[in-house]
Computed example of a mutant assay.
Amino acid sequence: MPRLSGRTTLATVAASAGVSVATVSKVLNGRSDVSESTRARVQEVLREHEYVGRRPEPVERPSVELFYQGFLNSYSVEVIQGVVDAGQAAEVDVVVTSRPKHSQSRSSGRAQPWVRELAATGRRAAIGITSELTAADLAALSRARLPLVVVDPLNIAQPDVTSVGSTNFAGGMAATQHLLSLGHRRIAYLGGPPTSGCNQARMNGFRGAMEAAGAPVPKEYVWLREFLYEDGLAGGAALLDLPEPPTAIFAGSDEVALGALEAARARGLRVPEQLSVVGFDDTQVARLASPQLTTIRQPLREMGAVALRTALQLAAGEKVDSHHVELATQLIVRSSAAEPALEPAVS
């Protein structure tokens, strides 16, 4: 059968097959009121002329907004991967954006433009990672009827804000008890922002373990800044330059721990022979460190997945079992902590 030139239409297919346009349409739509011989003839013509019908309208997939503040680090990348993977499984688009920590709109307390943008683009929900949100942010999200789930919130104390985290207090205790079991008593805590809920829980776990062991915690043994490598470097230097430095450091994140390792290296201290370091998170950098980092594992990807599933539940108007979900932490022993070195004999 000669192929027709130009764009193939229903009319040209019908003329070639010797049937009506309506019959061709019935064949394309799978209607049953067409004889088998006619159907076969029309389908043959469609194949011969490589007929491409009108493309169906694209089905709009639901989407959620995943935002973070500051710079991406090993912790946030793991959480984002968990959200994205869960979104793919649920056939939901995840749009990742960065929001500045401070802006004129945030300080003014007015309705937040970013929330209006989310509502205008049809987002079903918003997920924040270690984000600092104001009362104006929360009010704007509520007015827009956009459910919010926060992973490790920095400053949210409201009981009605849904959040996902880990057993930070238990993790802080486990890290400190491990160092105590090795024989350390001069243990310092090198942590994150004082207002951060997860930092407070880790530090309280540290203090609880130290108090239970009867080990004092001098004021200068607690150093708080951010969960960043640079802060670990500065804090580690401050701790190690004390007249009586600690023999072990419990760091509130793996990146902070890496900064402490570098501070020790710069002072000629060997880890773990002369200084033990324990981190928190168990991100990839813990395994890439030298020595490999003993740390507290947070199920970061699962935390992201739980945040995504919870956000979708709220968007669907479903009730959630708890406004705050904590996933279990686990001590991972590697090679950055050991028994403390013997004090040199006093002559």
Rank of each mutant, 00 (worst) to 15 (best):
T176S: 08
R225W: 04
A209I: 08
A17T: 01
S74H: 11
R301L: 15
P340V: 07
K101M: 13
V320S: 07
A136G: 03
S98W: 06
V320K: 10
P245S: 02
L239A: 07
A188F: 09
S335E: 14
S142Y: 10
L312W: 07
A338T: 12
G317V: 06
G232F: 04
S103I: 14
E65A: 00
A341F: 14
A89N: 04
A311Y: 04
Y51D: 00
I129V: 12
A135I: 12
E211Y: 06
R39L: 04
T97Q: 12
R47P: 10
S74W: 15
N204R: 11
I296G: 10
T121G: 06
E226V: 10
M173N: 06
A188K: 02
R207W: 00
A328G: 13
T97I: 12
L261T: 04
G122V: 05
S322M: 12
V115F: 05
E302C: 15
D160V: 09
Q81N: 15
A111E: 12
N155G: 01
L182M: 00
E78V: 04
A139T: 13
L4Y: 09
V92T: 12
A338F: 13
V278C: 12
Y229G: 00
L233I: 06
A111V: 01
R225A: 03
M303G: 15
G128S: 05
S290F: 06
A136Q: 12
T130H: 12
V325P: 11
V19Y: 01
A119V: 04
Q43G: 05
Y229R: 02
V333S: 09
T162D: 03
L148Q: 08
Y189I: 08
S74A: 09
T294A: 07
I127E: 10
V19S: 05
A307C: 07
E57F: 10
G70N: 10
S196Q: 14
Y221D: 10
G197N: 14
G18D: 08
E211M: 01
I187A: 01
L314N: 02
I127H: 11
T167A: 11
W114N: 05
L179W: 06
V79S: 10
I127L: 11
A125R: 06
A260P: 03
A175M: 09
A257T: 03
P194Q: 14
